[in-house]
Write a protein that binds this DNA or RNA. Sequence first.
DNA 1: CAAAATCTGATGTACGTTCATCAGAATGGA
DNA 2: TCCATTCTGATGAACGTACATCAGATTTTG
Lengths: 355, 355
Amino acid sequence: MTRELGGGRTASGVVGRPTVHDVAREAGVSLATVDRVLNERPGVRKVTAQRVADAMERLGYQRDMAAANLSKRRHYRLVFILAAGTNSFMHMLRDAVSGTASFTSADRIELETILVPPFDGPALAAALDRLDTSRIEGVAMVATDAPEVRDAIARLVAKGIHVLTLVSDAPTSKRAKFVGVDNVVAGRTAAGLLGRCCPLPGRIAIVMGSSLLRDHVERRLGFETVIAREYPHLTCLSPIEGRDDSETVARLLSARLAADPEIVGIYSLGAGNGGIVQALRQRQGQRRISVVVHELTRSARTALIDGTFDAVINQDAGHEVRSAVRILKSLIDGRPTFDAQEKISIDIFMRDNLP
Amino acid sequence: MTRELGGGRTASGVVGRPTVHDVAREAGVSLATVDRVLNERPGVRKVTAQRVADAMERLGYQRDMAAANLSKRRHYRLVFILAAGTNSFMHMLRDAVSGTASFTSADRIELETILVPPFDGPALAAALDRLDTSRIEGVAMVATDAPEVRDAIARLVAKGIHVLTLVSDAPTSKRAKFVGVDNVVAGRTAAGLLGRCCPLPGRIAIVMGSSLLRDHVERRLGFETVIAREYPHLTCLSPIEGRDDSETVARLLSARLAADPEIVGIYSLGAGNGGIVQALRQRQGQRRISVVVHELTRSARTALIDGTFDAVINQDAGHEVRSAVRILKSLIDGRPTFDAQEKISIDIFMRDNLP
DNA sequence: CAAAATCTGATGTACGTTCATCAGAATGGA
DNA sequence: TCCATTCTGATGAACGTACATCAGATTTTG
């Protein structure tokens, strides 16, 4: 009925978690030796090191990171590399980083944001190479999946920097982990929603930002797979590349809608929700088009309320940033990460569950 | 393009965040006085205290909690009070607590779980009164919304214990905060989903656990409101109280389904998903019934895959527990909580986005 | 077997905070 | 003005760890 944690005894015999003193006593060595083992300093024979390791094992010793960091005067310096530009989701990410920063500073974690031009592999790679690797220990970036970027990541990792991809992955790079939603699943979900909203046969317009962005490619893949398999009365048109820019999206989508009167649904898997709304509004009052988009931006929210959009698939920027921070800290501390706990889930918003 | 945090200088003039020493110097008082102010110890004139407060303000002093806790040998001892019984969601909560415990122990946070009989206000109140208030500083409970519980919470709060409600609230109690989803919204969402899945007129069966549980009551409210307003072709039947028990749910729901052939949809807002599946399976192959339930349990997952359920509304037990821990820690430390960040969102699962 | 090389122990300081103690200063009242 | 009260300062030990130094022990090498 009751579960307790902790145990062991300190040097003074009082109950509490074991300290280096306990380990030293248990292993029959001095504090200095335990310290050398713990911090992988030279000058300890293998046998002795093993004795110490065994003692730590036996006692269930866990190094007190707070005390260690205090002593080391350590600061975790993390860098977030995000895309510049006006797109709403990136703004939300930026805000999430600065919002998180004010909290993590209490834990000696400092966050810095660097903006790079969007859709630009070389620029991102250059920014990575420009990082002062002696001052930072972790990087989280919204990756462009380009060869230069993969190489730059490899260089960082080689220098001992811990690297994460955020929101959009570079799967074949050396990044330690990816923090973000499963974008194939996101695309599948969108298909399930849009499929149910389009009972009549017709065509689906797909709007994406760039096929350089892994997340967009994956969403499209998931979407088209499910539409083809489960909603045979619907056909996907070749995607419009709106470069995550509302103006461009509005222009290209308007043209597409004008050209093809058989479009019954729109799936926008990138940014530029405002452009979708604009294009739909321009259109003469014909048959209703069902719409599923990504990211709960301001325009998406109002479009949901007034019925222009049917559903919005969202990823919580705050969750993602905090998760990235936690993971980077764990990596830096050399602690295991609890992956199940860091999975970022997909939020579906409709009119009735708007927050 | 770049944002940095931190600043100030230490006693030694090196850059870093300000310490008590800096505050003392800035205020022109001794370390001891700063300490007295900081820890609200007696023996400081109001004017002096103000001088110190001003200095802290000017320097942007932030107490280093890690160092403080180290010095104080502080352990955060938190208690989670959950409902006993076999229901899957409670199991997930229990697992979430023990899973979280292994991580928080690195931060000197110890979690203990206490189980109480479900739907039993007096039992919960008794458990609260039985807590050793000298050993713990925070409590999170799945509340039964009963007067005894409210009183017991008030007694705890009076003793300086920080109290949270988890998953199910007791809104008129003295609990500091509620951690869980907005259950009215959850009910509304369910209605939106079920409404779209039931195009033909008919009746909706509602299955709940107990009207003593605030979360169930709120979900029902949200659900019935939206159905009445937006789906006039559907009528809600009076709820079945299945006491969150699969057997009971199966029995009562089978009877209801047999008695009323016009049921086109089921909304189960409590536990006992297995019972729903069972009742539907027993039924002779008549017209399909659409189903929306809560919590992604094992049986809900398989039912989603085989098409028995249309959608599952889920709350992430892990998120909730971790959020509760963070909030309790902030309360104990006397730090502000970032509420926007602690909002628990509602997950909607359909066949296509199962994790 | 002695000298050189390597390993280990003892010790002290530091990190930023808490807490206790004691002496001394400022304040208030008579 | 003097004494009793408050207030304030100085100091030192502690929390658990990191890191440096030096002396002494042990092992390895020639």
